[in-house]
């Protein structure tokens, strides 16, 4: 169990270590994906241009990337607010 500062309640809130570790891991993975997206900027534009000009070899790249990013980043953001203590009103 890790303890995260809760400034409003002026106390420390317990966050189970596996939840914190998964959130950090997913965050890092998400950062790597976005770093690679910017690194391949020109290549992605080129692939779309090729597709528009009739060469359909890389047409599915955007779809595969969309699924991959949402899976990783979606799971990260879900845990992000949770770790910060922003939860649904119960």
């Amino acid at each position: 169990m890790h303890y995260v500062a809760d400034y409003y309640l002026k106390t420390y809130r317990p966050v189970p270590t596996p939840i914190l570790a998964t959130a950090i891991l997913l965050g890092l993975l998400s950062m790597v994906l976005y770093f690679m997206l910017f690194e391949t900027n020109d290549m992605l534009v080129e692939m779309a241009t090729m597709t528009r000009e009739g060469d359909k070899e890389f047409f599915s790249v955007p779809i595969v990337l969309a699924l991959l990013f949402s899976l990783v980043h979606g799971h990260f953001t879900g845990r992000f607010w949770d770790v910060l203590g922003l939860k649904h009103k119960t």
Partner: peptide, 12 residues
């Protein structure tokens, strides 16, 4: 995507 109109950089 088949027509090459998806700008995946914007989407992501």
């Amino acid at each position: 995507a088949w027509e090459g109109f998806v700008d995946i950089r914007l989407s992501m």
